[in-house]
Design a protein around this nucleic acid. Structure first.
Lengths: 167, 167
DNA sequence: TATTGTTATACTCTATAACTATA
DNA sequence: TATAGTTATAGAGTATAACAATA
């Protein structure tokens, strides 16, 4: 992990990095792709994550904090900046005067949709040379990992409701 | 990508997120694991990346900047903070008075080794229930992706010397 | 002139602690 | 009392622009 530089690139057969190094470096590759796409839209990864989380639902500040693993005070700032740029709106929860609900604006939806499309295009471009079988396997294994990890952390991906441990 | 919450968790068979969402969410999972381990050592991911890059070689400021995709001014700050904590040292390059070489200290090596070990343990814990075949496939496919991406960006992983595009 | 690196500046992102308001 | 959010503060991380030193 963490960049062992003993990696050799043979023109054809790709040296296997091992699961751990492979996964860690894969995560850096993906984050770099997402980062470059979002940067073109003058968004950070975390801002995009916020907008993405709001794509199909409204969430309270507390839910956002749990979902993205942020302190509530950090969430305040994150939402402040998104709101200032017109991507999200705050409103008070109907049945709980303490709770603040955050929703995507039209503008916010537009930008997050565009980013998602471009990220998909970039990632698909990288794996276009993989066989269909390999692509399917990669998809399945990535999903498996995500679910195993979520399970281990006791996170329920289904609900906007989240409880977690790590950290 | 970017957190489409239409995900359902069936107890056994894990719903396939699709390659793109799967990979993006996988990258967030891995980053969360790395982040929590590094945080326990009071390190950020980027600090750990710096130390990791120096594990087997000394690098100039410019090389670090290229390798981690940072502006040279950001690199100055990054190395400043690492140096202040005694994890790296600066020295002047023998044959080029402009160039500053950065090396790991004993203390820096100790901490990066420890972090790497713990990250490996955490990741292995997540995938321990995968079959050997699946683990091997995951490893191979992750490596494939990293190399395909590096190729597309024109990055040579072999050398401390790096040239790139994206961004 | 080009390259290497630092400094000054400004902004985002983050957590901790202290606070207000609602339940 | 407990929960939801905000504010104040401090620090890391980042880029841009301007600079100094070396090649």
């Amino acid at each position: 992990m963490i960049h062992s530089p003993t990696v050799k690139l043979s023109a054809k057969a790709t040296a296997d990095l091992g699961v751990v190094d492979g996964l860690v470096q894969l995560s850096f590759s993906i984050q770099a792709i997402v980062g470059s796409v979002t940067a073109h839209h003058d968004l950070s990864i975390i801002q995009t994550r916020l907008l993405g989380a709001l794509r199909d639902r409204k969430l309270s500040m507390a839910q956002i904090a749990r979902l993205i693993s942020l302190d509530k005070s950090s969430t305040t700032g994150l939402v402040d900046r998104a709101e200032k740029r017109g991507y999200v709106e705050r409103s008070i929860a109907p049945h709980d005067g303490r709770s603040v609900l955050v929703t995507l604006t039209t503008s916010g939806r537009r930008v997050v949709d565009r980013v998602a499309t471009e990220v998909a295009r970039e990632i698909n471009a990288v794996i276009e040379d993989l066989s269909d079988v390999d692509r399917r396997r990669l998809s399945q294994l990535a999903s498996r990992f995500v679910h195993l990890d979520a399970e281990a952390r006791g996170i329920d991906l289904t609900a906007g409701q989240t409880t977690q441990r790590r950290n």
